[in-house]
């Protein structure tokens, strides 16, 4: 995926976090997610299917790659 040049500094006076409520963070195994995180609702839960590794092209052994775990988040029992 070709990444765009971006500026991640919000305009003055703008707080992009305003208006959102935040739940717990995903595990660190999803570090370096650089593509869309596939998410789907199933049986009232959110299922999160891994991510993508930005450095995969330079990885030479499987140990350098990230695991693609499946995570389940139940919004009715977690806050």
């Amino acid at each position: 995926m070709e990444l765009l040049e971006t500026s991640l500094t919000p305009p003055a006076g703008v707080d992009f976090d305003t208006g959102w409520s935040f739940a717990p963070r995903l595990p660190d195994a999803l570090y370096n997610v650089q593509a869309a995180l596939p998410v789907a609702e199933y049986d009232g839960e959110l299922w999160v299917f891994g991510g993508a590794d930005e450095d995969f092209t330079s990885a030479t052994t499987s140990a350098e790659r990230y695991e693609r775990d499946v995570y389940v988040f139940n919004p009715s029992t977690e806050s």
């Binding site: 963070r25 650089q34 998410v39 988040f73």
Partner: peptide, 20 residues
């Protein structure tokens, strides 16, 4: 509710689960 998950912020740090 719309639930938004992820993704990377500017430093590609671990992600949040965010409830909209």
């Amino acid at each position: 509710s719309i639930f938004v998950v992820g993704g990377s912020d500017g430093d590609f740090v671990p992600t949040d689960i965010v409830e909209e």
